[in-house]
Design a protein around this nucleic acid. Structure first.
Lengths: 345, 345
DNA sequence: CATCATTGCTGAACCGCTTCAGTACCCTAC
DNA sequence: GTAGGGTACTGAAGCGGTTCAGCAATGATG
């Protein structure tokens, strides 16, 4: 493997100093008063030598990497079958291209959770987008080390941490209102991780709204299923009770899809026997049958907003807002229908 | 923003030279004959100063970044609704953690396709995993610049480019055999990009097998639909012909899902009126109804293999194999059924 | 007691680039 | 004739590490 051409090679070949090459190639020739003739000569030499500046050299000299990390819970996060992850990454990548930053995908380091913060804060990225539960120690650790961070799709515990999120409480309320409006009174919910403020907000919005309308929903109607493969039997028990719920709000599309499969395999017909509302309204909702009614958060837009916010912070600018909460909407599709048993009550 | 602690700070504080600190912190104290006492002192000082080595400094000095890029066709690639992308990324990230390399997500740079190669080859990554069509100029450009690359899920045109792929021809054959075995004789196919050798192999395997068995399949039975939103009307025309196909092989799950939706919306009942076989057998196949029969390639395993291959190449080792072809399997599910009209022929 | 090996540590160079503070030169103006 | 001011360019330092060759001190050996 031959030595790469460096700025010194170009300088020697063009008969100028390295400095001059640097200024010319960075488009600062005018500003530094470098003559047109010299500029052209340098540019031609660089081209003929097939020279490209070494990125690491630049990073070190400029003390920035122009890279951001996207931090997920862990590699298993990718096991999701909804299109949440691709939609997030799409937003990050699109905005990344525009803001000219590299996107590093980070799940965890091999040495255990304590080292994640040091690793990320060791100068390889200028900032990080964090998608972890509210209380995750990584958020505090990175904040303490002074790395610019933005939490997205999760509202952090820590104060003063910029974030982009959905109004999850309202999302829960929308789901409840929709189901109540269809006449459902026996409601249940599949809630997410108990460490997640977001999941809790969805639950609280749903439960509070349901109870305010006089619907039955008790603690035993709330099942916690975090990852898609986590305790499917809990769902089955819920549906096999006497007087099972007629409508279900599930904290994520991903888990909602699994509930649909389980319900079908239990012989239930959807939505006749059970109405289901998901959360995220990923495009995969249109791929299942019946199409899943879901609370929409504008995933790609939010990811772009978070990325833009982070790049501003990294560059020392004050972003217009450092805490953005998007209002959710409901996309009504075929998985919800008027309650069949309402007359019986 | 205060100055970060550097190796010099630790050295001064511990009363030794920078060199000694470097050796100790890199675990080479023994080898360099540094006494246990000094080692401990340095380690304690480093800890008390909360010192972490700057990654960019190390990259420059060691002339490697320990980072790889994953290059997709473009940000729109994330629009897929199957779980292909997450499964790929999961494999790359898992193996990346084990191999201790960072994963950079790269779609394209803002300045246009020509600069992608220079960008990637400018020393910010030690290698790249490429998921692009066979003839993509990027592959040749990177190869010419000497950046270690591995093409995955795509068999490159260029010779001597290491790759990890599935035996797509066999995949096509498996699909044909399965459908023929169910009695189908009027077959059609939704084929992928004409630039993709992989898509062509799937088509050729399918068509050759079908014709060898005497089934009807002509050019007009082969519709090209690349991205999910690309010309759905072509599919409708295909199905509205007199004597429409009774079975369909679709080059990817993603597009197969869309065909299922379209078919349903045209009033067809699946699998009675149309059997469908997809490709990839992503976990999303279990989320659609009927569950999609699909040709399985072990996506996560393949992604890991590609990543392992690339890290070997980067480190100058000769990997055991530099071209791996996985055999496909068929996962038979509910979207395929015996042909209903076979008796009529 | 001179020689030699071993132990324990470090100075200086280097990785490839940027940036600050000049310098050298020439032209104009009083 | 010289101060003043552009114009065109560069030397040296610095970013934060790593690595090689070498050096001083110590103890063992003949």
């Amino acid at each position: 493997m031959m030595r790469r051409t460096t700025i010194g090679d170009v300088a020697r070949e063009a008969g100028v100093g390295k400095v001059t090459v640097s200024y010319v190639l960075n488009g600062r020739a005018r500003e530094r008063g470098i003559s047109e003739a010299t500029s052209q000569r340098i540019i031609n030499t660089a081209r003929s030598l097939n020279y490209t500046a070494n990125a690491v050299g630049q990073m070190l000299a400029q003390r920035r990497t122009n890279a951001i990390a996207v931090v997920f819970q862990g590699a298993s996060y990718f096991a999701s079958t909804s299109s949440f992850i691709p939609e997030v990454l799409r937003g990050v990548c699109e905005e990344g291209v525009e803001q000219r930053v590299d996107v590093m995908l980070h799940t965890n380091v091999a040495d255990g959770p304590d080292s994640d913060a040091s690793y990320l804060a060791s100068g390889r990225v200028d900032g990080a987008l964090i998608l972890r539960d509210a209380g995750d120690p990584l958020i505090k650790a990175l904040k303490d080390r002074g790395l610019p961070i933005v939490s997205f799709f999760s509202r952090p515990d820590e104060a003063d941490v910029p974030f982009v999120d959905t109004d999850n409480y309202s999302g829960g309320r929308l789901a409840a209102q929709h189901l109540l409006g269809l006449g459902h009174r026996r409601l249940a919910m599949i809630a997410g991780s108990e460490n997640s403020v977001d999941a809790a907000d969805r639950k609280n919005g749903f439960v509070a709204t349901a109870r305010a309308a006089g619907a039955q929903i008790e603690d035993r109607d709330i099942v916690v299923m975090y990852s898609p493969l986590d305790q499917p039997e809990a769902f089955c028990r819920l549906m096999q009770r006497p007087n099972p719920p007629t409508a279900l709000f599930v904290w994520s599309d991903d888990v909602a899809f699994q509930c649909m499969s389980l319900a079908t395999s239990m012989g239930l017909e959807l939505p006749r026997d059970l109405s289901i509302v998901g959360f995220d309204s990923t495009s995969a909702c249109l791929r299942v049958s019946p199409n899943l009614t879901s609370i929409r958060q504008p995933i790609t837009v939010m990811a772009r907003a978070a990325t833009r916010m982070l790049t501003s912070l990294m560059r020392g600018q004050t972003p217009e807002m450092d805490q953005i909460v998007f209002p959710p909407q409901i996309d009504v599709r075929a998985s919800t229908a008027p309650c069949q048993v309402s007359a019986q009550r």
